[in-house]
């Protein structure tokens, strides 16, 4: 157990040494959100209507940019080989790495979310729903994303390919998350949507670590 704590500490330490890589996706997210009032309409009603979708789409796109970081350095400098030769369980190692990735790339998003909600004129109910969907949905992004990162990490130009692989897979999450916020806007209950996202998260949490470990092995071959 202390071994996995060691990985956690090391990865956190490395992540905070590369602050630029943490901040840039968030800046990208803010800028994408800014484009919508300018490109669609600044009217408060319109913004409120498209707001949840805009925030979620921007979150997915920015997560795609930060995703590659997950295994890139470990693959390139050979740390991954050493993990595999240490006799540690690779699914557990991947789970720890995904957790660190979620903490460093999505938790700052929560700090940013009040600002985004204000930009897009979300009501308080909508904001609460948005935070809840982000809380359940973003770990899902990290878990599923890590499988695709594991597969593409050995390729020279994996960036766009990663997006091609992941965007279709993220569509159900987008649908349920935005619909939860829409329901909140109409003062309707949205437990169903949250429950579905939670179910998807549990499924991914159970299966993804093994898929990630398998993908990393394929990349090593």
């Amino acid at each position: 157990m202390s071994l996995y704590k060691g990985i956690f500490k090391r990865d956190m330490h490395i992540a905070f040494k590369q602050k630029a890589e943490l901040v840039q996706p968030l800046m990208f997210l803010t800028m994408v959100v800014t484009l919508f009032p300018l490109g669609v309409s600044p009217s408060p009603d319109t913004l409120q209507r498209i707001g949840p979708g805009v925030i979620w789409i921007a979150a997915i796109l920015s997560s795609l940019m930060a995703m590659e970081r997950l295994f890139r350095d470990d693959f390139q400098d050979g740390s991954l080989e050493q993990y595999m030769l240490s006799g540690m369980a690779l699914p557990a190692v991947s789970a720890v790495k995904v957790t660190v990735h979620w903490l460093v790339s999505f938790v700052p998003l929560f700090l940013l979310s009040p600002l985004l909600a204000m930009f897009l004129n979300l009501t308080v109910d909508m904001y609460i729903a948005l935070v809840l969907t982000l809380l359940l949905g973003t770990p899902l992004l990290s878990l599923i994303g890590a499988i695709a990162v594991g597969l593409t990490v050995g390729l020279q130009k994996g960036g766009v390919l990663l997006a091609l692989l992941l965007i279709p897979v993220f569509i159900p999450l987008l649908i349920f998350a935005t619909s939860a916020v829409d329901s909140a806007a109409l003062q309707l209950p949205y437990h169903a949507q949250l429950a579905i996202i939670a179910a998807m998260l549990l499924l991914a949490a159970a299966l993804a670590p093994f898929a990630i470990a398998y993908s990393l092995k394929v990349s090593q071959n």
Binding site: I144, I147, A148, L151, T152, L165, P168, V169, P172, L203, L207, A211, Y214, S215, V218, S219
Partner: peptide
């Protein structure tokens, strides 16, 4: 690799 993606897709 493509096989892993096909399986992820089919679950989805």
């Amino acid at each position: 690799a493509a096989g892993v993606m096909a399986l992820v897709g089919v679950v989805n």
